[in-house]
């Protein structure tokens, strides 16, 4: 269970949000620059909130800020880069030690086959296309079975069939493994398919929470309505 209530000042407004989410999938939707990515950065530990708290299953992540490596999370963005000095296999298995690699052999095989990485396994990152790089980054983030997965538009710029495929895989794994998933996205295909529960954020404030269907049909603010119309 993720419990958070935090504030974070930005140049033009302050983020001030409070929400909880259990072992399910929660979407974060809102206009660009509304503070969604900053919120995920705070949860990941890349940015420090000004005040409030972040608790994960009763463990305090803030305050004081828990070091990044002690947060069991997977964080995926559209700017994800692979370790250029390692092969695809070494990237994917990066977070697993030798014992974990032996124990997780079946899981690694599932990752390989579901994400279509078999043919890429021994390649270098520079030999991959953009879509392949995202697949490997996703495999790397999920390989150690994190308890919390943060997605910051990881599918932006990918073609629609690939987005549907990757979204379906993440949804399946979330249901199987039971991790908590928070997804920031502008793409209704992603949010509708992935998140039964969506929070709408505007200028750092939570203005609506409900299913994607509710949000899409009955937005509570003109800005949100305008954003949905554009989609």
């Amino acid at each position: 269970m993720l419990d958070c209530s935090l504030t974070k000042a930005r140049r033009d407004f302050a983020i001030d949000v409070e929400f909880s989410v259990g072992s399910s999938r929660l979407g974060l939707f809102g206009p660009s620059g509304s503070g969604k990515s900053t919120l995920l950065s705070c949860l990941a530990g890349l940015e420090i909130p000004d005040s409030g708290y972040i608790r994960w299953n009763g463990q305090s992540w803030f305050p004081p800020p828990l070091p990044l490596h002690r947060r069991s999370l997977g964080y995926l963005t559209q700017r994800e880069r692979l370790f250029p000095h390692l092969s695809v296999a070494e990237n994917v298995l990066f977070a697993l030690n030798a014992a974990a690699r032996r124990q997780q052999e079946a899981w690694v095989q599932e990752i390989q086959s579901r994400l279509g990485l078999e043919a890429l396994w021994d390649r270098a990152p520079r030999e991959l296309s953009g879509g392949q790089t995202r697949r490997v980054a996703m495999a790397r983030a999920l390989c150690r079975k994190p308890e919390l997965v943060l997605l910051d538009e990881p599918f932006a710029g990918l073609d629609r069939p690939l987005v549907r495929e990757l979204t379906a895989v993440i949804k399946l794994w979330q249901e199987e493994l039971g991790f908590t998933l928070l997804a920031v996205d502008h793409d209704p295909v992603v949010l509708e398919a992935l998140c039964p529960d969506v929070i709408a954020i505007e200028k750092g404030q939570v203005i609506q929470r409900g299913s994607w269907q509710e949000l899409a049909t009955r937005p509570v603010s003109p800005t949100l309505r305008g954003l949905l119309d554009k989609i």
Binding site: A44, G45, L46, P67, L68, H69, R71, S72, L73, G74, Y75, R79, E80, R81, F83, F94, A95, R140, A141, R144
Partner: peptide, 18 residues
């Protein structure tokens, strides 16, 4: 060395020395 790669390592559970 791109700092985001080091950040990725920390997010994957690596200590600063690792």
């Amino acid at each position: 060395v791109p700092p985001e790669l080091e950040q990725s390592g920390a997010l994957l559970g690596l200590t600063a020395s690792a």
